[in-house]
Simulated assay, not measured.
Amino acid sequence: MQVEVHIVNAFTQQGKGGNPAAIVLDADNLSISQKQEIAAKAGLSETAFVSSSSIADIKLEFFTPTRQIAHCGHATIATFAYLKQRGTITQVTQATKETIDGIRQIRFLQDAVYMEQKAPHYTFPEANDLPIIYQSLGLSQYYTLKPALVNTGNTFLILEAPEISVLQHIVPNFEKIAAISEKYNLVGYYVFAKSQQAGIDATTRMFAPLYGIEEESATGMAAGPLAAFLYHSGRRRKEYMIEQGRYMKQPSPSLIHINLDIKDDQIQLLYAGGQATLVEKYTIEI
């Protein structure tokens, strides 16, 4: 069987950079094992499979090269932007997606797409795991930095590096990161530093070896937890601009915009969004 795959870069800046997602349309008749095989052959951090839904505009399922994942920010943005550009989705301002754990809202604003994430839930790693976490990033000398585990749909370990140069020169130990990720049911680590660029709140790096992703250039489902972390750590505003991908081996700077819905000083939900650009199409044999 031949399956057509569409590659769309999400969270681009003026059509450049971003994070590529593979998209498979009309996936209703594909089995779970076939979807996993396609995702492995596509070889990108996530592949999105679009199926019909009786409760939302479309059903979306996400697979990394090694396993299924509940939500994926950049693949969601890529899929809805592409379907809007094709005319498959005709709604002007909003749509919905069905996922394996419920319905999420999608908003359209000019040429950008925004996806809903839940109110954040916080936990913290055990004290005896902190040295392992720091060592897994080569940050053993920065024990005063306290990571948090933040979930807005997926759980990420959020950790602030003391400055950009430290973030830039992180040397990840993927075996240790995977072990911590498995213990705490994390997708991965989202490490950030205060940006030196005007208009950008944080520059970030994301490592998710447990899911077959060594490093990713844009992670919408991690940018949401980071924005919540920034808000609750005193850097309070309703909008954040987060950059990612600048310090990868092959740089691909990406821009993620976060909007927070605040009531009584608490985050009720949030939206992560950005632009997306079609890169190529090809077929995979399964």
Rank of each mutant, 00 (worst) to 15 (best):
V3G: 03
V3W: 00
N9L: 10
N9T: 10
K16N: 14
G18D: 06
G18R: 01
A22K: 02
A22H: 11
I23W: 01
L25I: 02
N29W: 00
L30Q: 10
I32N: 13
Q34T: 13
Q36M: 04
I38R: 02
A39S: 15
G43D: 12
S45W: 06
E46T: 01
E46M: 05
A48D: 00
S51A: 14
S51H: 12
S52N: 12
I55M: 07
D57C: 12
I58E: 01
I58W: 08
P65N: 05
A70M: 09
A70K: 12
A70Q: 13
H71A: 12
H71E: 11
C72R: 03
T79I: 00
Y82G: 03
Y82F: 04
K84E: 09
Q85M: 02
Q85E: 13
R86Q: 12
G87I: 02
V92R: 14
A95V: 06
T96G: 07
T96N: 01
K97M: 11
T99Q: 01
R104M: 14
I106V: 04
F108A: 00
L109P: 00
L109R: 15
V113W: 02
M115H: 07
M115Q: 02
M115A: 03
E116Y: 03
Q117G: 09
Q117F: 14
H121L: 09
H121I: 14
T123W: 02
N128D: 15
D129S: 13
I133M: 07
Y134P: 03
Y134R: 10
Y134I: 11
S136H: 13
G138W: 09
L139S: 12
L139W: 15
Y142V: 03
Y143D: 13
K146A: 05
N151P: 01
I158H: 02
E160N: 06
A161C: 03
P162Q: 06
E163I: 07
I164E: 14
V166W: 01
L167C: 03
Q168Y: 04
P172E: 08
N173Y: 01
F174W: 13
K176Q: 15
K176A: 15
I177D: 14
I177A: 14
A178G: 00
A179L: 15
L186S: 04
Y190M: 04
V191Y: 05
A193I: 05
K194M: 06
S195G: 04
S195H: 02
Q196V: 08
Q197A: 08
I200P: 01
A202H: 12
T204D: 06
M206F: 10
F207W: 09
P209N: 04
L210S: 10
L210I: 09
E215M: 01
A218G: 13
T219L: 07
A222R: 04
A223F: 14
F229R: 07
L230N: 09
Y231S: 10
H232P: 01
G234T: 07
G234A: 10
R236F: 14
R237L: 11
R237C: 08
R237V: 07
E239Y: 05
I242S: 10
E243V: 11
G245F: 01
R246A: 00
K249F: 11
P251D: 08
P253C: 10
S254Y: 06
S254K: 00
L255S: 09
I258A: 12
L260I: 11
L260T: 10
I262H: 05
Q268I: 15
Y271C: 02
A272T: 11
A272P: 06
T277L: 05
V279H: 15
K281C: 10
Y282K: 05
Y282F: 02
I286D: 01
I286M: 08
